[in-house]
Design a binder for these strands. Structure first.
Lengths: 197, 197
DNA sequence: CATGTCAATTTACACCGTGTCAAGCAAAGG
DNA sequence: CCTTTGCTTGACACGGTGTAAATTGACATG
């Protein structure tokens, strides 16, 4: 065991998290993380085989400490599809800003590093499953718009909730978070719900 | 003048275009482009000071030969705002796939290279101006939804037409191009037009 | 014909970030 | 005590971008 109470692995993850959080998701190098964790660059490689691995572990670390599962709970216990969408959009939409830094870094690696690509695909599949459940409920309630197939509806919701959409509205357009949530919710209702709702 | 009819600069641009077009927008290196153009890597630097510059020049090259201006003309001569949106979405939406490869490469550089970032911002400003004109017409016609300010409406349309949204629906979700156009148009109408239209 | 210029060539190198390797050091624990 | 564990330092290979210098070959103009 190490002399300091908290183990090194956690120190690395925390350092990575902090650095990625404060602004430039990209441009954070392994050496920066090492320095922030107070260890040598090589020591980082003793715990994580590659930058891609470190980044994906960092997202898991964040998920664990921010307890994303608990946050998504309300959406799973919603009384009907309509409310499920509400809860889901709110939960995920408000989670994005907390992981944006790390996501940005992974997204940037995705194009070149196949490992990062699959890690990201995994992450997105989880989100997609949430969308699928919500749409399924809508379908069950009979409130799903007839102009979209179930698959298309899932794709639409998934796209609306994508990090890129959030990024575009919040970062590029400068929208406040509340406005983002409200507007995405509004679009989701308009495009997914049957007219007579 | 060079002995071969077509000058080297164009050969480079064409080579870059072709390589970026066929698949992996990223992963195309300067040496690849040089090889494809039939010259040495260093010769490329005689014509373009940096990779970022080459990429942005390539988009201009494509714009020129694909005549984007002419394609956007119908949207500018539309009789009313509603039709202007139709024409604009169709023109831009169908243009994206033709520039996607190059755009992907620039987008990837954007995070690290400030030069690429400003080049991309320029490009996006042009698109945004198109959105602004369309929304202004809607406002003039009185068909703009009252639930959005003019600025917000522009932001929404701009986001719907972003390359990232296209990428998500077409690449990640596998939608056919026609479906993409139809659905974006549908969302745009539902979110931008006043109820009574 | 000689000269100068220009485009492109080759070779070489600097820089940066990732990832690897080897040797050494300090402390914990049998 | 000696071994193991966790980390250190230092060095290095690789890949990609960008720079620099010396050279060749074609062409135009004197």
């Amino acid at each position: 065991m190490s002399s300091d109470g908290i183990d090194t692995r956690s120190k690395i993850l925390d350092a990575a998290w902090k650095l990625l959080e404060e602004g430039k998701g990209n441009g954070v190098r392994m050496s920066d993380i090492a320095k922030a964790a107070g260890i040598s660059r090589q020591a980082v490689y003793l715990h994580f085989p590659s930058r891609a691995e470190l980044l994906t572990e960092t997202t898991r670390h964040i998920d664990r400490t921010k307890n994303i599962e608990a946050r998504l709970l309300p959406s799973r216990t919603a009384r009907n599809g309509r409310e499920r969408i509400n809860a889901f959009v709110e939960a995920w939409g408000n989670y994005i800003p907390e992981i944006y830094g790390v996501v940005q870094a992974i997204l940037a690696m995705k194009d070149t590093d196949p490992e990062a690509a699959t890690a990201w695909a995994d992450r997105m599949r989880a989100l997609r499953e949430g969308c699928e459940s919500a749409i399924r409920d809508l379908k069950r309630d009979g409130t799903l718009t007839p102009s979209l197939t179930e698959k298309e509806a899932v794709d639409m919701l998934w796209t609306l909730l994508s990090v890129r959409t959030w990024e575009h509205l919040r970062i590029d357009c400068g929208w406040p978070q509340k406005r983002y949530i409200a507007e995405i919710l509004s679009i989701a209702r308009k495009t997914l719900l049957a007219r007579w709702t």
